[in-house]
């Protein structure tokens, strides 16, 4: 059964948009790879908060792809049959999503990519964050802590080998590591984004290398948190390690606040609302002088709207620091 999360509010249609004044509200479908983890939940909730959804001029329906490329393909067919005005696509697989995009393009429905990439040039536009950049930023933090010149030993906890985020974050990790020849990578292994797997791996690495490990580069927050648990379990002092993760999940924000790690926030809110603005823009026939409704464009001057003409919008990463962590935690209540 397709799990539908209707995010549209029952509010009367507002007269804000000239194009939508006498028409039905625009129907936009969001096909996301899965709703089990916190990041995509924040992403989906952000769609509901978009001003155009709030004022009733746009109706958004989120389709849970349940981590299955075939399910996502079926959901595309449903949206095409139902005549959706635009589709926002967060694919599970970089290759398998291409056929779904093709089908929508054939039906003349604009598809806006968000968060994860799909290998298709038929995508109308893409709003996401550059994983190479986050991989570089987190590694630079760890290297800065242990000292690039003095050198030391780090371990890398990788995502599932072959996933685009793992490939790109590793590329970023390696870019930063290349600048510090005195730093040795003792171990590098996948823990499949999982806290429990990372904890086991780190326990075993601590057995082999003891406290010669100076830094932990976790390609996501869950794995960095697993490493922290392993360090505590081994009776070692977390503050003796430089630990970094990516994503800015709530547990990681709390760990940053406790001074245990560094995290790099991937802004789900900006990725979702930016993609929705582009979807509305293209679904309404790209009216001249149309202004995006979300506040995120004002929030990120480095990501200009450019009249909606760009193919790719890069949402900047935000390092979570002692200064901004309380404000970020407040948004998670």
């Amino acid at each position: 059964m397709t799990r539908l999360l209707s995010l549209s509010s029952a509010l009367a249609m507002a007269a804000g948009m000239a194009a939508a004044q006498d028409a039905e509200p625009l129907r936009i479908g969001a096909a996301v790879y899965g709703l089990n983890a916190e990041f995509m939940q924040i992403w989906s909730a952000a769609l509901e908060q978009h001003p155009s959804v709030q004022d009733g001029s746009v109706e958004v329906t989120v389709f849970d792809g349940r981590y299955d490329a075939l399910v996502q393909q079926d959901q595309f067919e449903t949206m095409i049959t139902e005549g959706y005005d635009a589709i926002i696509f967060v694919p599970i697989d970089i290759e398998a999503g291409a056929a779904a995009v093709q089908a929508a393009a054939d039906a003349g429905i604009p598809v806006i990519g968000s968060n994860t990439r799909v290998n298709s040039d038929l995508l109308t536009a893409y709003v996401g964050s550059n994983d190479v950049e986050s991989g570089r930023m987190e590694a630079e933090y760890v290297l800065g802590q242990i000292g690039c010149e003095e050198g030391g030993n780090v371990v890398i906890l990788e995502g599932p080998i072959g996933q685009s985020a793992q490939i790109q974050r590793l590329e970023g990790n390696q870019e930063a590591l290349a600048a510090c020849p005195n730093v040795t990578v003792l171990e590098q292994q996948t823990a499949n984004w999982s806290r429990a797997e990372a904890q086991t791996l780190m326990e075993n690495w601590l057995t082999t290398h003891g406290d010669t490990i100076d830094g932990v580069i976790g390609q996501n927050d869950e794995m960095a948190l697993g490493a922290i648990e392993a360090i505590k379990g081994a009776g070692l002092n977390v503050s003796d390690f430089a630990i970094a993760g990516i994503d800015g999940i709530t547990d990681a924000l709390n760990a940053v606040k406790a001074g245990e790690m560094q995290s790099i926030l991937q802004d789900a809110n900006a990725q979702a609302q930016g993609a929705l603005d582009l979807a509305i823009f293209h679904a309404s026939g790209m009216p001249e002088g149309w202004e995006p409704q979300s506040e995120i464009w004002a929030q990120y001057p480095d990501m200009p709207w450019n009249d909606g003409a760009d193919k790719e919008y890069n949402v900047p990463w935000t390092p979570v620091t002692a200064e901004n962590v309380d404000a970020l935690l407040a948004t998670r209540q």
């Binding site: 429990a196 948190l225 648990e229």
Partner: peptide, 13 residues
């Protein structure tokens, strides 16, 4: 025990 070990209970556990 899994939740206690990792410090948080996950729906994907």
């Amino acid at each position: 025990m899994l939740a206690a070990r990792t410090g948080s209970a996950l729906t994907q556990a």
